[in-house]
Design a protein around this nucleic acid. Structure first.
Lengths: 240, 240
DNA sequence: CGGTAATTTGAAGAGCCTCAACTAGGGTGG
DNA sequence: CCACCCTAGTTGAGGCTCTTCAAATTACCG
């Protein structure tokens, strides 16, 4: 988390200590673990230290919608902070390490580490923007654009974590998962992946996608990277 | 804004003063005003004091996606707080009154009115949840469910503002707008409205929809009201 | 190395879109 | 005060994208 936030501001010693305390007790969970289900009591969230996970909403008819794919350094379950009972189901896609964050940690942030609280708000706002982009993608673009878009989203977020990431995307999602995230069926995701490959935009190997024509993918999807250079000028000064 | 936040916590005198200062200079704008366009310089947001507005993303092909319909008391443009340039176009649907909020106001909130900053974060998280619900609706439900869902969303949010709101929804959206918000065309929205009316769930008059079978609409849409009774226990204590 | 999960491909059908034309309302100017 | 226009709503017909159903192939995990 310190590494993640350190990209946006120069963290103070006190802030680093606080973040270290928040991440003091990591827990390892196997792939496919359901951290919590919709309607479970909330009251806490998590930091995903390593591994991939998804937030999903399960619909009455049995279908599901993945609302977010989580990468290392992400917060899990934060939209449910203001809810008594969770609104999303959280599932790990790989073996993962997580740290529990009781909501009381937030109180401490607001009282003693306002800049960290501000950073949390900043990340939430960027996420809202990204969710808006996704609504636009699902509501107004075709299947090819949506699949191209999720690939770009994932690789750009991986680059935030590790700038050494090239154009190779280690995909931890099944085509079913990609369908659940983009509002498509697995069958049609498969056809779109093949189409993008035929068009020379990607190369596929099991578990890996190489983005060979990123400009083309951007053109196809209208993707905008909302994570580059956020405005941090309004954040309060660190206290310690 | 004080009325809105006062539903969640008992505001202190200092907090009320702060909110009053934030809303000291209302500006009246006519219907159809574009407050700002995508890619305009950001650096501020607004409070919508009265009237309706929409946030929308315009796509390269000319289509648009409404990401949010704003009612009195809402904040406008907050997802762009962390962006140098706005990510959404803000347009008024009716004559409206707005107050500009430079981002520097946020700094003051974090430094001197932490609970208000916390409330802002809380509202943002609820919104994220609502955006997730909308993604699920657009990605995984049919047109009838989406139209039923937006009607329920609007009337429930009006009830938050005015508990005396009955089952009559004064619709300030055209069918084109509803289509842009639900990822449908105006033509198909029209058919779905007619269908819901034929099913006895709504009654229509120009500019007005009466929700005559709300339980049926909820069943049809899977709508969940995320605004009822949020968890405020983690908010910091007020300072003054 | 066997069993299960994931991917791939085909064929047919459904839902929503596109195009088009017509109606109703509401404001504006002559 | 009426004619006009422009916006919003309505309805029909046909077509396209994506889904559904089905089956075969490939990859993966214990």
């Amino acid at each position: 988390m310190a590494a993640r936030l350190g990209r946006f501001v120069e963290l103070s010693a006190g802030e680093r200590d606080m973040l270290r305390a928040m991440e003091a007790q990591p827990r390892s969970v196997p792939r496919g673990t359901v951290l919590r289900r919709e309607r479970d009591l909330a009251g806490h969230s998590w930091i995903l230290e390593s591994g991939w996970a998804v937030s999903a909403i399960n619909l009455p008819d049995g279908s599901r919608q993945i609302t977010r794919v989580h990468l290392p350094g992400d917060m899990l379950g934060s939209p449910s902070i203001a809810l008594e009972r969770a609104g999303e189901t959280l599932t790990t896609l790989t073996q993962a390490t997580v740290c529990v964050l009781p909501n009381s940690v937030l109180t401490v942030l607001f009282e003693e580490h306002q800049r960290l609280a501000g950073l949390f708000l900043m990340l939430s706002q960027i996420e809202r923007m990204v969710l808006g982009d996704r609504i636009a993608a699902i509501g107004r673009t075709d299947a090819r654009a949506r699949v191209a878009g999720i690939l770009l989203d994932l690789i750009n977020r991986l680059r935030l974590i590790d700038p050494a990431t090239g154009n190779v995307l280690p995909l931890q999602l099944t085509q079913e998962d990609i369908g659940d995230a983009t509002g498509l069926t697995a069958v049609h995701v498969n056809r779109m992946m093949r189409l993008l490959a035929d068009e020379g935009m990607i190369e596929r190997q099991p578990g890996i996608v190489r983005l060979t024509d990123e400009a083309g993918l951007v053109r196809a999807s209208g993707y905008i990277n909302r994570w580059s250079a956020p405005d941090t000028s309004w954040l309060p000064a660190p206290r310690s």
